[in-house]
Amino acid sequence: MSDLPKSYVSEPRLNGEGTEQPAEPLVLIEMIQRLKVRDVMTSKLVTVVRASPLREVQSLMKAKRISGVPVEEGGRFLGLVTINDILRALEGGYIDETCQKHMSTKLVVLEDDMPLSFALRYFENYHYGRFPVINREQKLVGIICQRDINRALLLELANELNRLESEWVLSKATAQPYNLYVLREFPVSKYDFENAGKAANKIKQILQEKKFPPKIIRRIAVAAYELEINLCVHSDGGSLSWQISNGRVEIIATDSGPGIFDLEWACKDGNSTANEWIRSFGFGAGMGLVNVKRVADEFEIESTVDVGTRVKAVIYIDAKLKDEI
């Protein structure tokens, strides 16, 4: 797990009372996994330096209507002055002293490429009003509060609603109602083992509801699951999309890097770049792509190093079933 940010590793797993409640709409769960902290945070920062008096922070808070001001020098994040620090300074009569002496330095921070689900869990676990956000170079790049999250989710929900409405219009317009059953895309985040596999489980459940033959369902589910796990384990993040049309199921995994150097090698039994941490989850045996090829009627893979990889698996549905539906 050496290449993981520390906070990813130390986080407890979600329990049943977290965001995994079955009653929560899938669309919302997908959204909080797809959105990154950087998509939601405020990046126009109001900051002060260590030598700034607390009174200056108080004025900034009043003028900008904010409740926390980061202390930063040359991109280095040094601390945070919150409204509680200011209240204490007013009560204690030291409002003209500098931030250096009274700022909070024991801080919990978020990283800008974490999924929004992490941020939500932080708010639940730590009960802070805001979290500073740093990038991989440990530079302060933003601040996130619950208001930012609400705003972003409302916007995304509106977009998702528009998308679903257009999909519905598309399906209504299709002459043969079963020509296009489903067209969905699931985001998959790097190393997000908490959620990896959910898309494949969902795909299987939909196919069972539609009463597809069990053997076909098994092949589709295995291909989807292997590709989803591959995205989680090997990519920098990507998406798993699937559609049923013209009697065939098409599953496509697309990612934005790092790309596969040697495709032939990667598609052979037992070859894998997975580390021990990944193996501890039961994966990384180098059988993923081999297994997808095994269950698929058509298999395509293309990859460019530093650009990304696209894998397509197609499984034909029984012709008899096509007639029945």
Partner: peptide, 12 residues
Amino acid sequence: SDQVLRTAHIIG
């Protein structure tokens, strides 16, 4: 781990 159950579900 959760993945054991997700795998079990996939293979029925």
